[in-house]
Design a protein around this nucleic acid. Structure first.
Length: 400
RNA sequence: GGAGAGGUUCCCGAGCGGUCAAAGGGAACAGACUGUAAAUCUGUCGGCGAAGCCUUCGGAGGUUCAAAUCCUCCUCUCUCCA
């Protein structure tokens, strides 16, 4: 692949490259010397669930790996104790080291669904921060001024609106910046909201007489609600470890205006294929069709073509035709009769008796296709019945 | 160190002795309409099999027949002054 082709590929789905010229120079240099570039991406092992929003830059890293470069994953075991203030309007609770280690292992398992393990280096911040002295830390802090931090929206807004802003939080960019020095990063990947942190890396490298890294920023993937960025706290994410069924279903529930966005950042479709989708949308085709295509593509990446197709068939069967899914959870009971409310809570279809009653009252419960509304009803358990709550909660009850 | 303002149910935010399981909004859930989309309309939104009861308003005590509301101490946050 020529350098021009490489640049075109690497620019795809990227929001901003700072500075772009330097990326080209680095690629050229690497091609000439045969020395692979070191591509940095830092993770914050505060949770163990990786969602497809995290994977936008990770997928970019994979492209670099396919071009022969090295991906370096930094486990932010120090920064995790701070909690990334970026984009947050509140402080985060700190984590114990034990918790971080557990999270980290699970995390990497998920990243390897995308990354090339042989070209991935995993590094812990402890390696370089663990042995630093206070004098070293003060020296690092001295490289920045408070004004620089206050120029940063995140800090300024927090400060101006009277929210607590911990002193340790301003260490976050400093630490992340120094990571780049420690691993001699050529390129750092991250979401656009990371800009400040990524640029801090360039500053740090310059202070340490190192060639500055190039910052490649990916857009922030919207959550399935279409309003907020994808994140765990809002429960609007599609996780790597979600079942294919959940992935398919979650894609189908995104707002229409997100379709192109997801195609661009979460699938492997080429620009040409995406334009084709765009044209079909503009031509007035039912967006549902394109969304199904999207759902299929996305599931395919993680589970393969066959499963993707199977999920689509199941989806159509259940939601378009109103059939009962064939893989619903089964429960067996020994009793001859059971009170509806108890049935609903025992099967976890409802969390509490109150919720069960509410569902009955709201016409949301059906047994073998018949609506049930009477909260005093006793169900006779003869053979096998299927209970449905709302549109998507099912359980099969078997007489023991 | 001094002065002031605060911590309310998932979130924001009213309440300032009983009529408070606690207004309003958001989120969420359910129903109608659909394409498991959006928008809209309707309803629900602490727990317990009902009447009734139990737990909740930063924490611990106290006053009172009665406390989210009053008092004491503690704790956390914000603002202003050193």
């Amino acid at each position: 692949m020529t350098i021009e082709e490489q640049v075109k590929l690497l620019k795809k789905g990227v929001e901003e490259i700072v500075p772009e010229g330097q990326l080209i120079a680095k690629l050229k240099k690497s091609a000439k010397t045969g020395k692979p570039l070191r591509i940095k991406y830092g993770i914050d092992p505060t949770g163990s669930q990786v969602h497809i929003g995290h994977l936008v830059p990770i997928r970019k890293m994979r492209q670099f790996q396919d071009l022969g470069h090295i991906g370096v994953i930094i486990i932010g075991d120090f920064t995790a104790q701070i909690g990334d203030p970026t984009g947050k309007n509140e402080t985060r609770p700190t984590l114990t080291k034990e918790q971080i280690m557990i999270n980290c292992e699970k995390y990497m398992d998920q990243l390897y669904t995308v990354l090339d393990k042989d070209k991935t280096e995993v590094r812990f911040q402890t390696e370089w921060f663990g042995s630093m002295t206070m004098a070293d830390v003060i020296k690092l802090m001295g490289k920045f001024t408070l004004a620089q931090f206050m120029a940063h929206d995140t800090f300024r807004k927090r400060y101006e609106s009277g929210l607590p802003l911990g002193m340790h939080e301003i260490m976050y960019p400093i630490l992340q910046g120094y990571d780049s020095v420690a691993i001699e990063s050529d390129i750092e990947l991250g979401a656009t909201e990371q800009k400040f942190n990524l640029l801090a890396g360039r500053d740090m490298q310059r202070y340490h007489n190192q060639e500055e890294q190039v910052a490649i920023m990916s857009p922030i993937l919207m959550g399935t609600d279409g309003v907020n960025k994808m994140g765990k706290s809002l429960n609007n994410y599609i996780a790597v470890f979600d079942t294919p069924k959940d992935k398919y279903g979650k894609v189908m529930s995104i707002p229409d205006n997100l379709i192109i966005n997801y195609f661009t950042y979460a699938t492997n479709l080429s620009d040409e294929e995406i334009s084709a989708v765009q044209m079909r949308l503009e031509a007035g085709e039912n967006p549902k069709n394109l969304k199904q295509l999207l759902a299929r593509e996305l599931v395919k990446i993680y589970h393969g073509q066959e499963i993707a197709q199977a999920e689509e068939d199941a989806f159509n069967s259940v939601f378009a035709k109103g059939n009962i899914p064939d893989d619903i959870e089964e429960f067996s009971f020994a009793e001859d009769k059971i009170w509806v409310i108890k049935l609903l809570t025992d099967t976890k279809l409802c969390q509490t008796n109150g919720e069960a009653k509410r569902m009955l009252k709201q016409n949301a419960v059906s047994i073998d296709g018949e609506k049930v509304t009477d909260p005093d009803l006793e169900i006779e358990l003869i053979s096998e019945i299927v209970v449905k709550v709302g549109k998507r909660r099912f359980a099969k009850i078997i007489k023991k």
